[in-house]
Design a protein around this nucleic acid. Structure first.
Lengths: 152, 152
DNA sequence: CCTATAAATGTGCGTGCGCACACACTTTCA
DNA sequence: TGAAAGTGTGTGCGCACGCACATTTATAGG
């Protein structure tokens, strides 16, 4: 017998994820654009700020943010130009360099956070019960554990 | 008093959606690329095939597929070149034209469907219980009703 | 009936983003 | 020690995609 039938309900759930992503992301982008901060910048600053010593190597940054490794490299260059992040050489491995968030970067992040959080609340979380949010986080988290590191 | 505190759990749920999207979409793209069918093509063919008379105007196609109106226009042009879709004039409104799926388009769609469904099962639905899938579809569906038509 | 506004579509252009590849350095192994 | 293989990063190139605009046709208002 076949391994398992492809169930239409799983497809509907995936379609919902796709459509929610397509609908909500532009709303959040506009909310952050209003304060002059691209969403990729916010993402990088957020991860850096939460990292030990507020610094991370490029690869680690790519893993923790929702950005590819190549994209990280370019975004960090832009952030450097804006004075929100600095590149520092890594004394233990001269191939790599650290990205460090600057005080100015932290201020911009703190200034943007309320807007961003409020946008997520208004355009996404507001429509869900806390029970749904719990289920969703747990379920999708389980998907991530398996799928996040599959590059074949 | 403030309207409502921004809850961190909602943010975590949104982060999960972002990361699952970022992790799963490339997997599905590779699965479909193996049979020579871009995911945007599949999306358009699927929606067209399910539409009344198997045809739709460009705007409707953009609404039902996960594609912008402009992108639809270009994808349909490509699909026309491949013989999978035809443009037909709309006799009732000469501004618009219909996109109609061809028999060849239906064959390609039917040939691709099992691969696509199996990929969704393997990379996404497999990791969720049917109860989670139900909750997820219902909750995200509610988000869509409100957010899908917010262009400001 | 004629004009002003709205709607449906297509397209030039700029940007985001990933794939390959190149480069520098590190680690492994004989 | 001296290659050879592996790892971390940056970048040229091409495609996807949305914005803004142009074009054509429909509709509303006088």
């Amino acid at each position: 017998m076949p391994a398992r039938a492809t169930d239409p309900e799983g497809v509907a759930a995936w379609a919902a994820v796709l459509r929610v992503h397509a609908a909500v992301v532009p709303s959040l982008e506009r909310a952050l654009a209003a304060i002059g901060l691209p969403i990729s910048w916010y993402d990088v600053l957020l991860v850096l700020n939460a990292a030990p010593d507020r610094r991370l190597r490029m690869t680690e940054l790519g893993e923790q943010a929702t950005l590819s490794r190549e994209r990280v490299s370019r975004v960090v260059t832009d952030l450097e130009g804006a004075g929100l992040v600095e590149r520092r050489p890594n004394p233990d491995d001269r191939r790599s360099s650290y990205a460090v968030i600057t005080p100015e970067g932290r201020r911009r992040l703190r200034a943007a956070a309320p807007t961003y959080l409020r946008a997520i609340e208004r355009h996404f979380a507001r429509h869900l019960t806390s029970s749904e949010i719990e289920t969703l986080t747990a379920g999708l988290g389980r998907v991530l554990v398996v799928e996040e590191r599959r590059t074949p």
